[in-house]
Amino acid sequence: MKKRIVIFGDSNTWGYDAKSGGRFNEEIRWPMVAAKILGDRYRVCEEGLCGRTTCLDDPFNEGLSGLNYLLPCLQSHSPLDMLVIMLGTNDCKERFSLTGANIALGMRRLVIKALGADVWRDKPNILIIAPGPILKECENSAVGSNMGRCSDKSYKLSMEYKFVADELKVGFFDAAPYVVMNDIDFMHLTADSHIALAKKVSEIIKETLENKEVKI
């Protein structure tokens, strides 16, 4: 049976293309590129949603709390071998008034829920990904009126997520050294960054599920 992986994220997992305003195709979106790299022994379930938060209900958009959707999502794809979570960018919106440490508590709730879910084929394997930070230029871009002051706290997520991963004994990966944000809205990955992220995450998935030493 194929090893099943859920990749759970926001618009940078869904594949938002800031240049076109549409969606990158499957040859670019990082979960689908990772699936291709991993090959026929793996089944990657792509679960990205634009605007998704860790655990927050957005007052202007319905259904964006990752916490509310996580369990049915995992159940629908079970039995699972691994869960990859890359969230937090939308939690940085000024209207939520959170610190980096607050956002990490949202990630912590997600991981705890996933660890306790009856969806695992063998044992829970979870990887937290700290997303690439939102560049300061985003606040003065076309999306700045929606995002507000969001950049500074996004740079705190890597450190705070690492604390959560260490506490809960799950995997952690900082995407920042491997990705670049576009020069239009300064918060979404470039096409090249999707490819780079896919290569690294697929390596971590394979090493984790084949019981090899993971080098991050």
Rank of each mutant, 00 (worst) to 15 (best):
R4Y: 05
I7G: 00
N12C: 04
W14M: 02
W14F: 06
G21A: 01
E26R: 05
I28D: 01
R29Y: 02
W30M: 00
I37A: 06
R41P: 03
R43P: 04
V44P: 02
V44F: 04
V44E: 01
V44S: 03
C45A: 11
G48Y: 03
R52Y: 08
R52W: 08
L56W: 01
L64K: 11
N68V: 14
N68R: 15
N68L: 13
L70A: 11
L70P: 08
L71Q: 12
Q75C: 13
S78R: 15
S78Y: 13
L87A: 08
L87V: 10
G88Y: 10
G88C: 12
T89F: 10
N90G: 08
D91Q: 10
D91T: 09
K93V: 09
G100S: 11
L105W: 11
R108L: 12
R108P: 09
R108M: 14
L110K: 05
I112K: 15
I112T: 15
L115V: 07
D118K: 13
D118W: 08
V119A: 08
W120G: 02
W120V: 03
P131L: 05
G132D: 07
I134G: 05
K136E: 14
G144H: 04
N146W: 14
G148I: 06
R149V: 10
C150A: 08
E160W: 04
Y161T: 02
K162P: 05
K162M: 11
A165E: 04
D166L: 07
E167Q: 07
L168C: 03
L168S: 02
K169M: 13
V170G: 03
G171F: 06
F172I: 01
F173P: 00
Y178T: 13
V180L: 07
V180M: 07
D192Y: 07
D192Q: 13
I195Y: 03
A196H: 04
L197T: 00
I204Y: 00
I204H: 00
I204L: 07
I204A: 01
K206L: 12
K206P: 06
E207R: 10
L209W: 04
L209T: 06
K212W: 10
E213S: 12
I216Q: 14
